[in-house]
């Protein structure tokens, strides 16, 4: 592996020291996660109410989803979370050469997630299981389209978060190559790590809520 130059970090002028800066950044990120929880929490409320009002549609709709593909995607996200954690571990141990490969692995797993998602979407679109106005499938339950409305809204917003996470991973890789991360400084890695786990966390609930209804 090529030698990565080490670049020291200096705290911004309005902080007393690097510890205060790091604490502030982490506190900000936790607040942001609180915000994310309420954002997807809205979808959770919607899910609960819609499932109470259209129980049949959820059972039938879930039957149209492949638990194999969903399970595969869960595995992708869980492993990607692990590789991201390993990237931070490498930074902390000053193993600069390993940071980019671990970040790259995380990126590829996220990409695989989206590819699988894309296959699922195209299959649903092919069968006319798209929300509302273009819904053309004939289901046993008259409100089957409500399930697929929810499916596309929730997984779509989640996929958007995955996409944003991939952008952040690219940003981290660029910085890691320039030697920004080492035992003295990993704050951006930690922040993206928290974000990525939040994305994982949401999927952990989406998977049984949509794919495993019976």
């Amino acid at each position: 592996m090529s030698q990565v130059p080490r670049k020291e970090h200096h705290a911004a002028h309005h902080f007393d020291d690097a510890v205060q800066e790091r604490d502030a950044a982490l506190l900000g990120m936790w607040l942001f996660i609180g915000q994310e929880l309420l954002f997807f929490g809205g979808l959770a409320v919607l899910y609960i109410v819609m499932r109470l009002q259209h129980p049949g549609a959820f059972v039938e709709g879930s039957g149209h989803l492949s638990w194999k593909l969903g399970g595969l995607n869960t595995a992708f996200l869980v492993v990607s979370s692990m590789t991201l954690g390993l990237a931070i571990r490498s930074a902390k141990r000053d193993e600069a050469g390993k940071i980019v490969p671990f970040l790259g692995a995380t990126f590829l797993l996220a990409l695989s997630f989206l590819v699988v998602k894309g296959f699922e979407y195209s299959e649903k679109i092919h069968h006319g299981l798209v929300p509302g106005k273009w819904f053309s499938a004939i289901g046993a339950d008259p409100s089957l389209h409500v399930f697929f409305g929810m499916y596309f809204a929730t997984t779509g917003l989640h996929a958007l978060h995955v996409l944003i996470g991939m952008g952040l991973l690219v940003w981290l890789m660029l910085r890691a190559r320039r030697g920004h991360f080492h035992s003295g400084y990993q704050t951006p890695l930690d922040l993206v790590n928290l974000y990525w786990h939040t994305v994982e966390l949401i999927w952990i609930f989406l998977f049984p809520a949509l794919y495993l209804v019976s």
């Binding site: 936790w30 996660i33 609180g34 915000q35 929490g41």
Partner: peptide, 14 residues
């Protein structure tokens, strides 16, 4: 506390 409070408010909502 932030994490728990967020879940608590989500609980109120539900």
């Amino acid at each position: 506390l932030i994490f728990v409070a967020s879940l608590m408010f989500l609980g109120f909502f539900i």
